[in-house]
Amino acid sequence: MFEAVLLTVITAATPLLIAAIGELVVERSGVLNLGVEGMMIMGAVVGFAAANMTGSGTLGILAAILAGIAMAALFGFLVLILVANQVATGLALTILGIGFSGLIGEAFIGVPGLKLPQLYIPGLSDIPFIGPVLFQQDAIVYISFLLVAIVAYTLFRTRLGLVLRAVGDNHGSAHALGYSVIRIRFLAVLFGGACAGLAGAYLSLAYTPQWVENMTAGRGWIALALVVFSSWLPLRVVVGAYLFGAVNVLNLHAQAVEFDIPSQFLSSLPYLATILVLVLISANRRLTLVNTPACLGKPFVPDR
């Protein structure tokens, strides 16, 4: 029983974790992309469609990542090249993504999907309890752990990470030092798109292997909240994502046990929890001000 609960926590947490770690990198570079939900849903539909047509889960995942990148490129062009308002453009990306995914996905409603296989890590997967929970997952779950490790290391232990954070904290100085602020931000935005696309693929290829319209159900927005929750630190994103995974599972199991609580109330728990967490974090000024990228959301036009 406990094993089963942990397994569902991991499946619920993985898409949030991947999308949030991508957005964390974007925000560390000083860009606020509110279009995570739109990139994620495009990843979900394109991933499902590609896997369905080619019969290959790997190709599905790749296609989803490309879809996320394409959406992010659109956002990057408007926000970084044309200096459009970041908040409004992010919203536009979400609205467009939801619309486009509905149009593309119409042919795939009710079509049986393809579920990513579980990969058994030899040796480790035989360990009792830990084995089935941690080492008998699908590829995307392993990738999510890998992503966190790579992002955490790159941000704080490499030159690239230092430059990225410099661009996010003070784009004027970074520009004066000769770094191309726009190019670095564009790459960060594309990375965020790739992550969001991958997170979408997880939803339609592993979480519920089918296409349902609006299947992201606000997860992109929750991922954005997780970045705030983490106060822009990668390891805290893991904590946040798994906490939310747990809330989600609480909801599922409570519905199965049939407590005398309306199901709609349980379904609203993740959203209410998000609000609560945001309030608790933002009320603590010290925590938020230390790590918030100082140039977050501010436009940059290089003067030549």
């Binding site: 408007l78 459009a84 308002n85 409004a88 536009a92 609205i95 467009l96 993504g97 619309g99 149009l103």
Partner: peptide, 13 residues
């Protein structure tokens, strides 16, 4: 909804 989304994009651009 696709056309609505595109419209907002073009407006902002």
């Amino acid at each position: 909804s696709v056309i609505q989304g595109l419209l907002l994009f073009y407006v902002l651009a």
